[in-house]
Measured scan of single mutants.
Amino acid sequence: SQQIATAKDKYEWLVSRIVKNHNENWLSVSRKMQASPEYQDYVYLEGTQKAKKLFLQHIHRLK
């Protein structure tokens, strides 16, 4: 749906803004993002596993 696509774009923007180093780990980054509406919306719509998967894809691109 359009809502999910929009939430994903915003979440990816948030991840790219916060995660600048491929050594970052999911636990510390997800804690930093918990207060962000972009993170909350995406997790609400798609779940934590998908959020983690996108985070890991971003990390992989930074290597």
Rank of each mutant, 00 (worst) to 15 (best):
A5M: 12
L62G: 03
Q57Y: 07
Y44S: 15
Q34K: 10
Q49D: 14
N23S: 11
A5H: 07
Q3K: 10
L56P: 01
F55K: 03
Q2L: 08
R61W: 08
L27K: 13
Y39N: 00
W26S: 01
R17P: 02
K10L: 02
V15A: 00
Q3Y: 11
M33I: 09
S30K: 14
T6A: 14
I4Y: 06
W26M: 02
E12K: 10
L14P: 02
F55A: 03
T48P: 13
A51F: 03
H58T: 06
R61C: 05
D9F: 14
N23F: 07
Y42G: 01
P37V: 10
A51D: 02
A51I: 00
D41Y: 06
S28D: 14
P37N: 05
V15Q: 03
K50Y: 05
S16P: 05
F55M: 03
K20V: 08
L56R: 07
T48A: 13
D9V: 14
Y11C: 01
I4L: 10
K32C: 04
W13A: 15
I18T: 14
I18W: 06
T6I: 13
S1L: 09
G47I: 01
V29T: 09
S36E: 15
Y44F: 11
V19E: 02
Q34D: 12
S1P: 09
L27N: 14
S36R: 13
T6H: 11
K50W: 03
R17A: 06
L14K: 01
R61N: 14
G47K: 02
W26G: 04
F55L: 00
A51L: 01
T6N: 15
T6M: 12
L45I: 04
N25I: 05
E12V: 12
T48D: 09
T48S: 10
L45Y: 11
D9R: 13
E38H: 05
Y11G: 00
I59S: 06
E46S: 04
Q34A: 12
V29P: 01
K63Y: 02
I59Y: 03
R31E: 12
K8H: 08
D9Q: 15
K53S: 13
Q3M: 12
F55H: 02
V29H: 00
K53Y: 10
M33C: 00
Q40I: 10
I18N: 04
Q34I: 10
D9T: 14
L56T: 12
S16F: 05
S30Q: 15
I18C: 07
W26K: 03
Q2C: 09
K10I: 02
E38C: 07
N25A: 08
K20T: 12
V43F: 00
W13D: 15
T48C: 08
A51K: 02
Y44V: 14
Y44N: 15
N23W: 09
K53R: 11
T48K: 14
L62D: 00
E38A: 11
L62A: 03
K20S: 08
W13L: 15
K10P: 01
W13R: 15
H58Y: 10
V15N: 00
Y42E: 00
Y11K: 01
A35V: 08
L14Q: 05
M33H: 02
P37R: 13
F55V: 03
S28T: 14
L56I: 14
A5R: 11
L62C: 00
L45T: 04
V43D: 00
Q40F: 03
H58I: 09
Y11T: 04
T48F: 06
Q3F: 11
D41P: 00
T6P: 00
Q3H: 11
S1C: 07
H58R: 03
Y39C: 04
R61Q: 11
A7T: 08
H60M: 14
L56F: 05
K53W: 09
S1I: 09
K20W: 04
N25Y: 00
H58S: 02
Q3P: 06
K53Q: 15
L56S: 01
Q3E: 12
Y42P: 00
P37G: 06
V19I: 07
H60L: 12
Q3D: 15
K8G: 02
K52A: 02
K10N: 09
K32A: 09
V29Q: 01
T6G: 08
I4G: 05
S1W: 05
E12W: 03
K32E: 06
H22I: 08
K20E: 10
K20D: 09
A5I: 10
Y39M: 04
Q40A: 07
V43E: 03
D9Y: 12
P37F: 04
E24W: 05
P37S: 10
Y11Q: 02
Q40P: 00
H60Y: 11
F55Y: 09
Q57M: 11
N25S: 15
V29E: 04
K20I: 07
K52G: 02
Y44D: 15
L45Q: 09
P37W: 05
K50G: 12
S1H: 09
Q40K: 13
K8M: 06
D9A: 14
K32L: 08
D41K: 09
I18E: 04
H58P: 04
L54T: 07
Q57D: 15
S16M: 10
I18M: 12
W13F: 14
S30R: 11
S36P: 06
L45V: 06
Q34Y: 07
L14V: 01
Y11W: 03
M33V: 05
E46M: 07
K32V: 07
T6C: 11
R61F: 08
S36L: 15
S1Y: 06
L27Y: 14
